[in-house]
Design a protein around this nucleic acid. Structure first.
Lengths: 194, 194, 194, 194
DNA sequence: AATGAATGAGACTTCATTCAT
DNA sequence: TATGAATGAAGTCTCATTCAT
């Protein structure tokens, strides 16, 4: 027997259900059934529904982070790195619509508030650090606009959410061609114009 | 007293509570108490909690739409109009954080899904029409990038949500100076570069 | 409509069920059904099961206290008063076996612990005060043994619980004759012997 | 290690936990952990939680019985034997507060009901027999009041429970002096007065 | 013989909705 | 028209018990 894969099974079931029905549209009973475990089993690994949802965040964030850093090199130019990160992020979200839907909901929930508090205190370790570093270097090199980091975040990453959402809901077909153009446009938003 | 201002009273009470506690953190009893009406009274005007929430969307959207069109002139350039609309939108959201919080939650909820379905069918009347028209004209004039309207939406408006959120959560102070720069950056994102 | 007799109906239903099944053998659903109200109704009047159980204590204690003080006169001798109080108490418990069973369980539960803490702090107002006064006067008059009040409590009232229990469980038939003899024996326990 | 001391370890762990948290505040998992055995192991020796609790009663009762009979001689007077038994009982309970708390809870629980049923059928073997014998002899010798045995039980033993409880909860310090006086008072309750 | 992960019935509690007043 | 007490379905969570290892 594996060293218990139950937690993962539960998280995957929850991901699928939450993507479709939202945090509050999903009951622990639904998750248990989809995961094919007893309800009590969920509570062996997650102290409460809230804890489960928060743990899911960490798991998903980690998956994304791993993907972003994969084949990421600090030796290329700021622009190249920006293109790589944003393209990878868009593609990841498109290919993992369940995780995308989950993250969207998480950020707009009471759970997400505590998360944002961490940002300002800078004690959060996660996917955003790589962007932060990149933006800071870009400013120093005078390649990026001299704006607060948080604004560069909004300019560079803000369009991704509605973009991906449109694709996931089939309002738009984001092929590689279109992704490339969209990323270029994001770059136009953050880069300095002479 | 007007014929009945009860519906508005209810909506304002709901707005305030939802901004703070989220859709599911607010009960009909809480709304009734804050609005100082009986619970049954809410049901006289709104068939269900879901209907109330959806009606709120229309009300808020309309308020925003009115503000956007106020002093909006089709006789100015695409760029001027873009600046006017985006600036006005940011300022409105900053000055009406309750409505902003509400809209954010709405879009990321099961309610929001039905809403987006309407977009593709083009049978939605609302604030987005004015942007759509503007973008279409901008493309025709070769001032804007030649991309699908939906992508221009994402590029031009996508940064606004995280931007405003950062301000509302006091992670960032968006003064007029900063707003201007942010709008310019959004413009850089959508405009055509020679 | 009466000014809502629901709380009383609930308490009576709970009393009956708890007497038979114990605190933990009774579910809120059982109480609701026996009281012929919805489960939610119970929560309108009692914030939780714990609160319900504690409120029941106050109600029962008050009923007993009222009965004890009925036709109680401070103008009679200590002995007469002792006989009156103890006899009345036994008879009350025999005639209200549900309340007796409830009180028994209450005192031997986590709920009862807090109750006893009050005793020592002397800030409890209740049926025991009348006994306390009586015992103190009896000591002063040198009619009762010169022992700590708490010990007189145990000597004078301690036999009542098993006595009543035996009667309630039909192990013994406590008629007036026997009650009188038992009270005399209790008196022998607390009184001073020359 | 003996053939298996597991049952005793389990019972001692249960005793400690139940004294503090009550029957229903203690889960089998808690007992297993405190006893340092697996949960399944408990079920090897006790068919269910109910059985465990009932077995504990027998064990505790036996320990008390053994103590009572230790240095008990039928050759002394009824009075001497009464003093010996009651004193020993009080001291045992004071020195074994866990067992005392357990017994208290047991008697006031659904478990205790079945137990009392046995009394009337006289098919119970236990600590009470020695008292029964003593009381019967006392009546015959006209030393004790001519009352039903059960009433003498209540008079002679009834005060012990609240007395010990007050001591255990530190409302009262029962030293040897006080114990002696309390036992004398109990004796006054049951003995015949000329 | 011993373990403890897994189970799921059932407990407490909330809240959208109804309806008699 | 307005009210809010009443309802009960449904949600989260616990824990006695089982069984594969």
């Amino acid at each position: 027997m594996k060293d218990s894969d139950k937690p993962d099974v539960v998280i995957d079931a929850a991901l699928e259900l939450i993507a479709e029905h939202g945090f509050h549209g999903v009951s622990m009973a639904m998750i248990a059934e989809k995961a094919d475990v007893g309800m009590g089993t969920i509570y062996r690994y997650f102290a409460s529904k809230d804890v489960l949802i928060s743990e899911m965040y960490k798991v998903v964030e980690n998956r994304i982070y791993k993907t972003l850093l994969d084949s990421y090199s600090k030796d290329t130019s700021v622009k190249e790195r920006f293109f790589h990160l944003i393209s990878t992020l868009i593609k990841y979200m498109i290919n993992h619509p369940l995780e995308f839907r989950y993250m969207e909901q998480y950020h707009n929930s009471p759970y997400g508030v505590a998360f944002r508090k961490n940002l300002i205190l800078n004690n959060h370790q996660g996917e955003l650090d790589v962007f932060k570093e990149l933006f800071q270097e870009g400013i120093k090199q005078k390649v990026l606009k001299d704006l607060p980091i948080l604004i560069l975040f909004s300019l560079g990453l803000g369009p991704l959410v509605p973009l991906t959402r449109d694709h996931v809901f089939s309002l738009l077909l984001l092929d590689n061609e279109l992704i490339k153009k969209a990323v270029e446009a994001c770059w136009d938003g953050v880069r300095r114009h002479t």
